[in-house]
Amino acid sequence: MPFARYRPVFAAPGALPFTLAGLLGRLALAMYGVSIVVLIADRRGSYALAGAVSAVGVLAGAALMPLLGRLVDRLGQARVAVPAVLATALPTGALLMCVRSGAPDWTLFLCWALSGTSPNLGGMARARWAHLHRNDAAALHRANALEQSLDELCFMAGPVLGMVLCTTLAPEAGLLAAWTLGTVGTLLFAAQRGTEPPLPESTQLASAGRGLIATRGFPALLAGFLAAGLLFGSQEVTTLAYTDALGRQSAGGVLLALVAAGSCVSGLAFGAIRPRRPAAVRLAFGAGAMTLLMLLPLAAGRAGAGLVVLGAALLAAGSGTAPTMISGMTLVQELLPAHRMNEAMALAVSAILVGISTGATLGGALVQHTTPGTGYLLPATAATLALLTTLPAALRTRTP
């Protein structure tokens, strides 16, 4: 694997420090989901309540993220990220107190929703890469591949770390550790001012009121991200239900880690290849491969295969997601103006988050009323939807 090709990505001064700082923040993001569920389920004795509070937090974050992104584009990353992450301290602390004190359930929903002001470090990092490598398409492609692989790495390690802390120290330990890591990571990230994209000029600010949704091609791209989120959310619930039905609930986390591992490796490999086709075409090819690979866990689940076979199928299926996401983020950087990049990235991530929440809900309903393996129909369908939304742009694109 020619990982030496990633060296030019870090040639810009300060690239490595902001990448490592952002990694801390994203690790925290990956810890939040399992930490909040374990905390509420343990202290209140209800997984239904825990799942509902977690879902409300995801949706609140999805709603606030584009607004924070627009502020970042106008005021700068550091000036918005620092107060935004510090503002999470009060509602997070209040949530812990409400859980322990037996406060009414509605207080948990309110506190966790108000905690959704954490800035989108992944989007801000991609905005920095877009600025640093604006004249080098190959380096930007590799930077996006690196970011996606780091995301997958965090979602391999984050849930495991959160679960270990919650079960070995205290139910509150996972959430406290996630908040600490997220705050420290964000503050360190914001301190790297040398790589922060410049503020827009007054003429650019005058056009900032126009909605990004009106940008040609962007609505279809957001629909693709929504479908990808639907895939992620439904696949997670279906996998956990399948292992539970086999009496091996603890293996669910391992299987989900295999999905992330497949995506991480394929992302690094995809980034090492010099792109020769337009991003829209690469996105369609990625979505097509993802659609075909998602048939593997569907076949394994419907056949009632064991964990080894299902694990191999999920590992292969995961390898199709990273190239699709990398190409999608690259296309966002190409379609949207540089002075609106943080808002654009936030909209993309929000679409994914809404998809994840919706996919988890639909997946849970499907596995509740069918055999567990049938639930893999939903991620396979979501992958097909992602392909259908990306094909028109690819067909309009003329390859060089």
Rank of each mutant, 00 (worst) to 15 (best):
P104K: 06
P66V: 12
T215Y: 12
C166N: 10
A143V: 11
A87L: 15
G162F: 00
T117I: 03
V354N: 03
A280Q: 11
S54T: 09
V160Y: 05
M325D: 10
L153I: 10
R26D: 07
G267C: 02
G318M: 10
V53S: 05
E334I: 00
R43P: 04
A284Y: 09
H133N: 07
A241H: 05
A360L: 02
E147M: 11
L387S: 10
P159D: 00
R79D: 04
Q192C: 15
F3V: 11
L293T: 06
A269L: 15
L175H: 07
A12W: 09
R210L: 04
T168C: 11
I273T: 15
I352L: 13
M1I: 12
A48G: 13
L108D: 00
H141R: 07
R398K: 13
G174Q: 03
T168G: 06
I352N: 12
V9I: 08
L132S: 14
S101E: 14
G14P: 03
L23I: 00
L221V: 06
A157V: 15
L366M: 12
T92G: 12
A386N: 06
A382W: 01
A380K: 04
L362E: 03
M341A: 08
S35N: 09
F3M: 13
A260I: 03
A130M: 05
S250H: 14
L132V: 09
L169P: 01
M124A: 15
L293G: 00
L165A: 04
A191K: 03
L347F: 13
R216T: 14
G116I: 05
F285G: 04
G211K: 07
A15C: 11
T239F: 01
L231P: 01
L59P: 03
